[in-house]
Design a protein around this nucleic acid. Structure first.
Length: 822
RNA sequence: GCCCAGGUGGUGGAAUUUGGUAGACACAAGGGACUUAAAAUCCCUUGAGCUUUACGCUCGUGCGGGUUCAAGUCCCGCCCUGGGCACCA
């Protein structure tokens, strides 16, 4: 018999077409079924899918196909996060309008998606650069403006000189631009903000709900980022009697204050006249974030000559300007306790300021003149008047009580989280719907005038700046309030705004409202979200914030948008993340050409569990291709024996075939559990490989018997459906070869019979003093007594015990016997 | 510096849920069958070492201790790798 070739190109095309024709992946509300909303983070259409995308979407597709077979009403949409800087850079470099460039990329990537056979409902496609999408960005902005959640303020912001735009704090961590990795400057600019800080407590509280379904790591990262701290706001005084409030988490050290420090940006400093001091302040302001936070260059400061009075002990201490003091945390000024704070200690030593001990080490008393670092551990209060002798932990509470009683301070909570700066001085983004009128000032665009359309007839001058401010057609407008001459806002929104609510828009992308109530209430929240961990404090935080705002507005029923989150690992090659700069990129197209989509998918799932990084290996891909071939040949060889209606009544437990049957049912059980509970797809595949290996061991003659036919029928009827979420195209083809008309995408997940998952014969081991001395194959229902008897009669065991006395015998049913002998 | 995750064959990774046969599955390597030959395919071997080559022994899950009849798994102390946080007062 001539072998039928595994022609993956033909097979994959054929089934992709069939799925499309049958509208296999369209989702409709069906309240009789359990809904399952599975979402992967949508891509930025950069031009081509990379392996990271392929992995992300393959994991998602497996989960979606599995859930569908399990009988759930699956919702699995896809779209494009299509505003953003790369389109503008491409426009400048290649003279293609951003919209054209983006459209072309989406076109190409959509074809790539189709080639891999992902099961998306494309009728719900979202493209964020399109008016019908960003209109609702603008609408949300107006709603948030109304509620005071969107506001404009002048502030010192992160400026990326490479991208020519402002960045949010989350996007400029450690003073480095998240996109282009250049060093970020500080700039004073008037900017739009979303008041995410109003939700700091909600965002923290929500973590409790997410504890079940989210990785601990992501929750920890967000918690750190929000950075809640409780402390005391203390009213220090100037000699003039003016208030000088500061925030501290260490009120127990308040008697050890030897100087105060204030941020260079602080408006208080406008009163400084001394030209020398003023020069220093200006210099500090201009320092880059990297300089101001660098460990080596050290803290810098200058004495203002002003004295501040400690309300606890009346001591007068000097006020320094410190380049390390942050304007937008607390009050922008701090009390400094060199004795018990490492940073203050270094500063004090540098500028010759006194060090005072107020918490002593109970083990060895501290000497402020000779100590080499601050004492930051716990201890006993000294030099602290009536608080002397208390443990510093107690003192925190007692001093706070005292401060509140005497009205010199108040307990306060502070967050590290800052408001989300959303203005971008870029063209390719969603226009901020605001108008500036000479008479009326800042006026929001009227809701009925939405959307404010981003003009597409743009001319890039090659100076890498947004063309928007020079486009009179866009900027010149009427004031919605007085109809006078007015100018439009030319900044656009951070693209993270687009992705902060897209998951909800998928439920009803064609609605005339922001959402269709029935659709959004039925499908939301996302049951399983899949994406990279790099978004822990960016997208995932913003999306939770938006979801909460929308919940407060009555638009969403849930506060949290993503019930379960899976953060998949990176794709690594030669020890590094695949990237152009490393030159270790593998193009998915090439691999699909060579081995087919099913092989690529299988490799993505087999090489590593989803959470971990995946090491790319050409040889590993070949191995996956070989496995598909093994199953393919087996099915083709025995297709003639297959009878889909043949059922095994009762198999004879003594035959080889029955053992195979048990392996089959075990496999179904294990694979189901690996996918459903453990999300460990690599071991699920390994188990199916084992079963395939077992099938290859069976004598062909035995399979030709009537029992053999029944067995092979049962095996194929379960194995092929099980393979289908992993390698959907070839599975459909094999299913068809076996004579099924129904497609696997519409079939159920195979069942197993629990009694058939127990092996009849098992191997147990006999140990003497914990060391394995012998083994035996026994019936699985062997009793403890029998096991013990067998062990004691075993020649090798008797020999090992020798002259020693048996002290104890431990029998673990079905596993082992351990004889303790001395 | 602080917090988290991890360290298992030549390689990717199993086993960690519940302490109970370490190394499933795959890759690589070696051997065999088929073939004029090669490819493909199918089968076998494969942690290290030792000897009397045996259903044999010893060692072996980063290092050092400990608990236990029994430890990759639990406890204590280190080392290393990866990730996160780091002037937040």
């Amino acid at each position: 018999m001539a072998e039928i070739e595994y022609n993956f190109k033909e097979i994959e095309k054929k089934w992709q077409k069939k799925w499309e024709e049958n509208k296999s992946f369209l989702s409709k509300i069906d309240k009789s079924k359990k809904k399952f909303y599975l979402l992967e983070m949508f891509p930025y259409p950069s031009g081509k899918l990379h392996m990271g995308h392929v992995r992300n979407y393959t994991i998602g597709d497996l989960a979606a196909r599995f859930a569908r077979m399990k009988g759930m009403n699956v919702f699995h949409p896809m779209g494009w996060d299509s505003f953003g800087l790369p389109a503008e850079n491409a426009a400048i470099q290649n003279n293609i309008p951003p919209r054209k460039w983006t459209e072309k990329n989406i076109d190409h990537m959509k074809k790539q998606f189709a080639m891999i056979g992902f099961s998306y409902d494309w009728t719900r496609e979202i493209t964020t650069y399109k008016e019908n999408y960003y209109k609702w960005n603008q609408w949300m902005f107006l709603k948030m403006y109304e509620k005071g959640l969107a506001y404009k303020k002048m502030s010192s912001v992160n400026w990326c000189p490479q991208c020519n735009t402002v960045l949010a704090n989350e996007q400029a961590e450690n003073g480095i631009c998240w996109r282009c990795e250049s060093e970020v400057n500080r700039k004073e600019l008037e900017q739009w903000f979303f008041k995410i800080t109003d939700y700091a407590e909600d965002l923290l509280k929500g973590h409790e709900e997410l504890g079940e379904g989210w990785p601990e790591q992501v929750i920890t990262m967000q918690r750190n980022w929000i950075g809640k701290s409780t402390g005391l706001n203390i009213n220090f005084k100037l000699e003039s009697g003016e208030d000088f409030p500061i925030f501290t988490t260490r009120p127990d050290t308040v008697y050890g204050v030897t100087f105060m420090a204030i941020a260079p940006e602080h408006p208080f400093l406008e009163r400084i006249k001394d030209p020398e001091v003023k020069r220093s302040i200006e210099r500090f302001k201009k320092q880059s974030i990297a300089d101001r936070t660098s460990e080596e260059k050290g803290k810098e400061g200058v004495d203002t000559g002003i004295k501040v009075i400690n309300p606890f002990n009346g001591e007068k201490v000097p006020l320094y300007v410190g380049n390390f003091v942050l304007m937008d945390y607390g009050s922008g000024a701090i009390m400094s306790v060199p004795g018990h704070d490492t940073r203050d200690f270094a500063f004090a030593r540098k500028y010759g300021l006194p060090v005072k001990i107020v918490i002593d080490d109970p083990k060895s008393p501290l000497d402020p003149d000779t100590m080499e670092d601050a004492y930051t551990a716990d201890g006993i209060c000294v030099n602290s008047e009536q608080f002397n002798g208390l443990s510093n932990r107690e003192a925190i509470e007692k001093i706070s009580d005292y401060a509140e009683e005497k009205e010199i301070g108040k307990r306060e909570v502070n967050y590290r989280l800052r408001d989300w700066g959303i203005s971008r001085q870029r063209y390719w983004g969603c226009p901020i719907p605001v108008i500036y009128c000479e008479k009326c000032g800042t006026v929001p665009v009227d809701e009925k005038d939405l959307p404010v359309i981003l003009p597409t007839n743009v001319d890039f001058k090659g100076d890498s700046k947004s063309p928007l401010p020079h486009m009179k057609d866009f900027t010149e407008t009427e004031c919605p309030s007085c109809s006078g001459k007015a100018r439009r806002e030319t900044d656009t929104m951070d693209t993270f705004v687009d992705s902060s609510w897209y998951y909800a828009k998928f439920t009803s992308p064609h609605s005339d409202e922001i959402f269709d109530k029935e659709e959004v209430d039925y499908w939301m929240p996302v049951d399983q979200y899949i994406g990279g961990i790099e978004h822990a404090c960016l997208h995932l935080l913003y999306a939770r914030f938006f979801s909460m705002v929308m919940n407060d507005m009555g638009l969403l029923q849930n506060r949290e948008p993503f019930t379960r989150l899976l953060t998949q690992g990176m794709v690594i090659k030669d020890g590094a993340k695949m990237s152009k700069s490393k030159g270790n990129v593998v193009d998915p197209d090439e691999i699909i050409q060579k081995y087919g989509a099913d092989t690529v998918r299988l490799f993505m799932l087999f090489a590593s569990p989803p959470r971990k990084d995946l090491d790319w290996s050409d040889k590993g891909v070949e191995g996956c291709f070989r496995f598909i071939g093994r199953v393919w040949r087996l099915v083709n060889k025995y297709a003639g024996l297959y009878d889909k209606d043949l059922k095994i009544e009762k198999s004879n437990p003594d035959t080889e075939l029955h053992k195979v049957r048990i392996e089959l049912h075990r496999t179904v059980k294990i694979v189901t559990k690996d996918i459903e509970e453990r999300m460990q797809y690599n071991t699920a595949i390994a188990r199916m490989m084992e079963l395939t290996n077992v099938l290859y061991q069976i004598d062909e003659k035995i399979l030709n018997s009537s029992e053999g036919k029944a067995l092979i029928s049962e095996v194929f009827s379960k194995l092929i459906p099980m393979l289908s979420p992993f390698i959907p195209h070839v599975s459909e083809e094999m299913w068809h070869i076996l004579g099924h008309d129904e497609m696997l995408v519409n079939s159920g997940w195979p069942q197993y019979i629990d009694e058939l998952t127990k092996r009849e014969e098992i191997e147990i081991v006999f140990q003497v003093n914990g060391k394995i001395r012998s083994r035996a194959r026994v019936s699985s229902d062997i009793s403890k007594d029998e096991m013990e008897k067998m062990a004691l009669e075993n020649g090798r065991i008797i020999q090992s015990i020798g002259e020693k006395d048996i002290k104890k015998i431990i029998v673990v049913p079905g596993k082992l016997v351990n004889i303790v002998a001395k």
